[in-house]
Design a protein around this nucleic acid. Structure first.
Lengths: 180, 180
DNA sequence: AGTGCCATGTAAACGGTTACATGATTCT
DNA sequence: AGAATCATGTAACCGTTTACATGGCACT
């Protein structure tokens, strides 16, 4: 058990506020999905496991078999331990950068093209994050404060990626300039 | 089959230069491992699959059962298609940032502490990349050029992460300043 | 003779994705 | 009545990680 992040993403959402699997799915989409995507299947499975381990519990049952979950005391203990424990996180996987390693294997014009598309998609991601920043009502809760901080990370990452891709595009151009 | 990056990382390494599984493992470590880690098990398995699909072939057999692989023509075609094909890459997973979303659930002093450790580990990563930049003999091959470009990505990412973590640490301090 | 490196492989378990499956309730 | 949404679950598959397993070759 060395990564298990979805488990704690789920537990954390319930620590912030109780809800059903369905509720959590929607809250996930507008917050953590950008740094830790989860599918519906996975979330429901995780909820059952967390409940079996006593870290969360069904606090009441509504229409359509809706089960509302809340975090338990031992759940809170476990969550706090996970957040503060020294972590060996799995290294980040970036397929786009992996391709950069291999760009020498294709014609320069196509390599240049690929890099330009990277810059475009970074710009697109940046615009998306900016839209979130400007459209969400950021209250003054701790939850909002840290969600905003995570968004700031996304903003800076996207800006950096766009800059880097443009830098690389120019470097490719300089490299392929007709020799004088 | 929507991600399959290790397959192409392997194929790409063989496109750059033939070698055995053992050779590739070592080349992996000093290059792509930072953006796409792979284990020994996985690599050997992938080599056998690639060979079965005719994208690579055993070019000769040495002592200790060493099998040297080379890329085939259809391997090159496939690799080029993968690099240039429009990609829906899997979203990046960042457990450290996931934790930031949950920092409101723990005492502010511990949250502040976590963020400081993030800054430290980003500094550490930056130093590691700088060391690579300064110690590797960068030739003027295409392979070296793009490896250097990927490293630049790492350098900028680490610097950005360190800046962001320090910004957040200060924001937490401001937020918790004794009210006047 | 012993250590360390070269070299490849298998098996079990886990986490994540996709597709399938079902049905109740609310709204128009 | 029908559509949209609420709501949960199962099964198969795939990629990844960890541990186990084996043995040859080179160097001292």
């Amino acid at each position: 058990m060395l990564a298990v992040s979805l488990r704690y993403a789920t537990l954390g959402l319930l620590a912030q506020q109780p809800g059903s699997g369905y509720d959590l799915l929607k809250r996930f989409e507008v917050s953590m999905a950008n740094v830790w995507p989860a599918t519906q299947s996975q979330l429901y499975g995780e909820l059952n496991k967390l409940a079996a381990d006593g870290l969360i519990e069904v606090t009441n049952v509504g229409p359509r078999g809706r089960k509302e979950y809340g975090i338990t005391e031992s759940g809170r203990v476990d969550l706090l331990a996970w957040i503060t424990r020294p972590h060996d996180d799995t290294p980040v996987r970036r397929p786009e950068v992996l391709r950069v390693f291999l760009l020498g294997e294709i014609p320069a014009s196509q390599a240049r093209n690929y890099v330009t598309r990277m810059a475009d998609s970074a710009d697109h991601a940046l615009a998306r994050y900016e839209h979130i920043r400007d459209s969400v009502e950021w209250g003054d809760s701790d939850t909002a404060f840290f969600a905003r901080a995570a968004l700031e990370f996304g903003l800076r990452t996207a800006a950096m990626e766009a800059d880097w891709a443009r830098w690389l595009a120019e470097a490719i151009d300089r490299r392929n300039e007709p020799q004088r």
